[in-house]
Design a protein around this nucleic acid. Structure first.
Ligand code: SF4
Ligand code: SF4
Lengths: 154, 154
DNA sequence: TATATTTGAGACAAGATAGTCTTAAATATG
DNA sequence: CATATTTAAGACTATCTTGTCTCAAATATA
């Protein structure tokens, strides 16, 4: 699996926030409900994103989470880094430790290229990109495809 | 992690075989010893490759495993398919089930491209490619870099 | 202030992956 | 044939990931 489930949930949660008007806090309960993700689990993951500085949160009624920066300034790689870490984008394809290409493995040439493709993709794709695309095509971010992308005006 | 540890060990084991003269069986014990992988664990993995038809085996003294086809006919993707399955190359980046691009997720465009890069890399790289490259550059396939790539004449 | 709501923190359980060990079956060799 | 070697099969344990639950702290609102 390329990304852990936690990371995928984090992405979907952040994407949800990026598709909303960012002025107000949204409760994780509502997000988990709309995205059909276990509330407790999503809470834990959103907490990680908050700790990482990607979200800000407020407790109590009318509380919730929201993006700290504007969605077009948040690349996917930041979410991956916060939850899965950068291992995928720095590690060896053969799992060998501590290579800086000094003593590479036979797969290095091919893997370094492929790894870069992944990295560039994650670096160049922002939450706003995905939210816009999602709204325009009414694309799914839930298993059953029931997700409304409201408000459309973001 | 892109590939499971089992898959990586399977690759390294198969690469070992491709770097040897393919006429005789090599014991898994020797392979695990040279590659510094747990013998029991590697045995289990090599069994999977044998069941998948990539290796053939013989029991008893002078027994062991060897490649069933010539190394230049074995692409990495076959090993991945045998051990991890094709999920990585067919599944959704957001973990959503059963998409055939009919109802895509917002990441689809980017991910489909990246996924293809990975697939092509795995399809176009053969064991012989890696063995040749490894011998020419004396590259490492063990954590500590102690691996000899003998015989050089393959 | 009292209450309900919501995040924060962390214990706990379930499931998947990784790794170990035991026993059986096959087979080369003396 | 007897024995040592090696794969085959699968039980078992350990570790990591995923998911659930409980309680505390903060806070909006009546
Ligand atoms: S060579 Fe590339 S893939 Fe191989 S160990 Fe070094 S970094 Fe990893
Ligand atoms: S769109 Fe592409 S990435 Fe998204 S669900 Fe369909 S296949 Fe998967």
């Amino acid at each position: 699996m390329l990304l852990s489930k936690s990371c995928i949930y984090g992405m979907r949660g952040a994407l949800y926030l990026a598709s909303s008007s960012n002025s107000k806090y949204i409760s994780i309960k509502q997000i988990s409900n709309d995205l059909d993700i276990s509330p407790h689990f999503l809470t834990k993951i959103m907490q990680e994103l908050t700790k990482a500085g990607l979200l800000e949160s407020q407790k109590g009624p009318k509380g919730g989470v929201r993006l700290k920066k504007d969605g077009n300034e948040v690349a996917l790689v930041e979410i991956v880094a916060a939850i899965d870490g950068m291992d995928l984008l720095t590690e060896c394809a053969l799992g060998l430790p501590g290579c800086g290409t000094a003593k590479p493995c036979p797969l290095h040439e091919q893997w370094a290229d492929t790894r870069d493709e992944i990295r560039v993709m994650l670096e160049e794709t922002t939450l706003t990109d995905l939210a816009r695309k999602g709204k325009e095509g009414n694309l799914r971010i839930t298993a059953d495809g029931t997700f409304d992308w409201l408000p459309k005006d973001n």
